[in-house]
Design a protein around this nucleic acid. Structure first.
Lengths: 106, 106
DNA sequence: ATAGTTTATCGTAAATAGACGATGAATTTA
DNA sequence: TAAATTCATCGTCTATTTACGATAAACTAT
């Protein structure tokens, strides 16, 4: 017989900056996403298809990574039919920059 | 038209900084690890047990997080029997600081 | 020697992440 | 209207992460 584990899994309450920094960091925690952001930063903006052409990954995979970056707030997407143009979200970019900078110490 | 891509599933070769930044970011991608690092930064150093006392997590879980931070190079552990003292790895800390700073732009 | 302290590691369960192809939705072009 | 283009989403599979308790390893103290 096998016992199931009583898992509380209650959410730990970290202070706000901690959670937010971790969210940004998590989004940056995959080389493809770092590379996408570097690419976006060089181009200022680009379409999904441009990125798909650059990486040896399926279109759906790239789309997934873009979604994660968008959910983390690091990029934003504007529809320009039939394409979608993605750009760095400057406001959150600055915020992330500040948060990492503060974290590592001035 | 997009041709079907030969699925390598092999490792994509990003440039060096990209991989390294992603490794650092991944280590920071969990709020517990961010909190541990903040704690370590305040205390300068501390023992595993100190951290276990601070977080509502099993000792083994904390130990695992410390291992990841160590593998990422952000902390280092020195044995002081019967305890292990963990400190920020200052060299890599500075490196990470610089890399994130460069990434987000001066 | 024995018992206690401290921490890492093992084994495992559950959740999340990352990859793909297929499909669908929206829009443009023929 | 029909076909093509562009991209997101769905379903699925595998790998990794995160958590736990149990145990082992290393050392101290009795």
């Amino acid at each position: 017989m096998r016992l199931t584990m009583e898992r509380t899994l209650e959410h730990i309450d970290y202070d706000d900056g901690t959670e937010e920094l971790a969210r940004f960091a998590k989004a940056l925690g995959h080389p493809t996403r770092v590379a996408i952001l570097k690419y976006l930063d060089r181009q200022s903006c680009c379409f999904t298809g441009d990125i798909v052409d650059v990486f040896p990954l399926a279109q759906s995979t790239v789309s997934q990574h873009l979604k994660e970056l968008k959910n983390a707030g690091l990029i934003q997407g504007n529809v320009e039919p039939p394409k979608v143009k993605y750009c760095i979200n400057e406001e959150n970019w600055k915020l992330a920059k500040t948060m990492f900078s503060d974290f590592f110490g001035e």
